[in-house]
Design a protein around this nucleic acid. Structure first.
Lengths: 337, 337
DNA sequence: TTGTATGCGTTATCAT
DNA sequence: ATGATAACGCATACAA
């Protein structure tokens, strides 16, 4: 491994001069600087992140805390997409990312300990149980954190605007003439709460009365439970004309159920998804859905986290709402009346 | 931050004794060891990976090189699933993972340089262009590497048994009475080559003659191109009775095309996928496909890479083939004759 | 402008 | 069984 020492020996300059030159310090003369830099690159020198960290106390490494347990984090296109965008932006700004978990090897550490162990400059938290004490410990620690899709006290959060998403969808469905709209929602999280609230709010504004039995619980990313909910809705005496799903993927369960009932989309029943994943756009009929702006979410998360890391003293926590975009497909029928 | 020094002060033992005790060295007495360990945990001590690395030259950190450019890596369930399994096993064995890419910040580094920068003990390589000189540089470096789904000279590779997968599928389709089988394949990679070869081999053995126009090029994970290929196949004078797709996801394109033609699966046309992703099992009719054992692939990759890292001198490169499993759905019709 | 000296937190060598 | 000391690679305060 080529070190500063090696360059020092070869160039005749001291290690500190070499160090400064490599960091383009203004203390060092131009000639010397360029000479040393050239020599360094010729010798194949590359800084050692660990050694640098030990001095500077800055790792240029961000922790990523996604859910552990069910491993559904990476499988969920929404999150893997946010993660990817986060990664790209972080790298652009000079940061690597490391997955945080508990139990590395035999050591059973908390998330916080893992972050300290790897000297993470900051951590992005998404897709976890925000009641987990280990998550809370991390957020309340001195390490800058940023949460995605969840407001935790005054920690900075990047949030997909679920209120607007649901509202836009409902308005769109209403415009197409529907008045009997059912809403299948995911498990109880702050996101879900906002979505349900948004649904009711939008309906109220449009003077639609929603019977309780049009609101069905299911789980995110789980076609089965959404299929079940669909079945119940279809077999109502007074079935809805349009069903909204927790996400595009779980709609697949509804799709199958609808076909089982010998119904066709959108002629017999209209449907809407949520997320706007790739799949939704290649299904036929194309799914009408609300595309969450995963790219912006990930990018803002990275940019803000790095901002918080860099300006630890002056950074002011904030909530950033990211709007998505209505994707009009062919899964909602225009009803004349 | 609590360091060994702090524990040393508080306990009265020297830093070296503390260090040894914390590492459960046999040099230190039992009592002292347990005393120090207890005190350390009480004080909230956690080792600093960077400092340790500086001494031991071991980071307990593995690099992950997935494709950069099109970002299709994480979106592809096959790879994200392998990655997840890799991560879980690596963590179990005490390793963290770091994504490798070029250009971190302004620095434009090669993959190899990035690995050195982060002191990766080893690197897993998947889903990249194996002709990229930067990939080759990395594989040929002194850093232990392991490749997934690609044999690179005598570097260790973990490979999904595509030969067997395609053969099993063809045999299954044949058993159901099909003799006109079309094969849509992905872009030209070693995986694709093996699959095409496997297809021909299996057909030969079954005395099926495959006309050239039953072999159609498309791209992986791309419903559009597979849709196009499907269209061409369906409009042949002598269309196949069964179409095999590059992967489950691109089948969606074929599915739409088949519906556009007013045909129904499997009554009018049979289809088979590849991968066995979650989606394939929730579609109706359920897709007959071949499930690649992503869990084993990722796990073996991690275990072997760590083996190579740990026993750098004695480790012998090898190829490990991982078999998958035929998933029989309802997308293939039984033909009487 | 350049060099000397020191320390980051840990482990390893060699004494005691 | 325990401790003193040096060293890993780098950056910086301070001296020259």
């Amino acid at each position: 491994m080529v070190t500063i020492k090696d360059i020092s020996k070869k160039s005749g300059y001291s290690t500190s001069t070499v160090s400064k030159a490599l960091n383009s310090s203004s203390e060092i003369g131009e000639e010397t600087t360029s000479l040393i830099q050239k020599m360094a690159s010729e010798m194949g020198y590359f800084p050692n992140a660990a050694a640098r960290l030990l001095k500077t106390n800055k790792s240029n490494n961000l922790g990523v805390l996604f859910v552990d347990e069910m491993q559904s984090g990476l499988a969920h296109e929404y999150f893997s997409s946010v993660l990817n965008s986060f990664k790209v932006e972080a790298e652009r700004l000079g940061y690597d990312i490391t997955f945080i978990s508990h139990n590395i090897g035999n050591l059973n550490m908390t998330y916080y300990e893992h972050c300290k162990y790897r000297n993470c400059d900051g951590v992005v938290i998404a897709c976890v149980d925000f009641n987990d004490t280990r998550v809370i410990e991390l957020i309340q620690s001195e390490i800058p954190t940023i949460t995605i899709d969840h407001i935790f006290n005054d920690s900075t959060s990047i949030l997909s605007d679920n209120l607007k998403g649901v509202k836009d969808l409902v308005n769109h469905i209403y415009d197409y003439g529907h008045r009997k709209i059912a809403f299948i929602h995911g498990e109880n999280t702050s996101v879900t709460q906002r979505r349900i609230a948004g649904f009711h709010k939008a309906c109220n504004k449009l003077n639609i009365t929603v019977p309780d039995y049009y609101i069905k619980p299911a789980r995110y990313h789980d076609p089965k439970s959404s299929g079940l909910a669909t079945k119940e809705l279809l077999e109502l005496k007074d079935p809805p004309t349009c069903i909204m799903y927790p996400d595009d993927f779980s709609f697949i369960g509804g799709m199958n159920e609808i076909e089982n009932h010998g119904l066709s989309i959108p002629n017999d029943i209209s449907v809407a998804g949520y997320d706007g994943i790739y799949l939704s756009q290649v299904l036929r009929p194309k799914l009408s859905t609300y595309k969450q702006n995963t790219e912006a979410l990930g990018k803002y998360a990275a940019a803000n986290l790095i901002d918080a890391v860099t300006n630890k003293k002056t950074y002011i926590p904030k909530q950033i709402w990211v709007e998505g975009e209505l994707l009009v497909g062919n899964s909602i029928k225009k009803i004349e009346f």
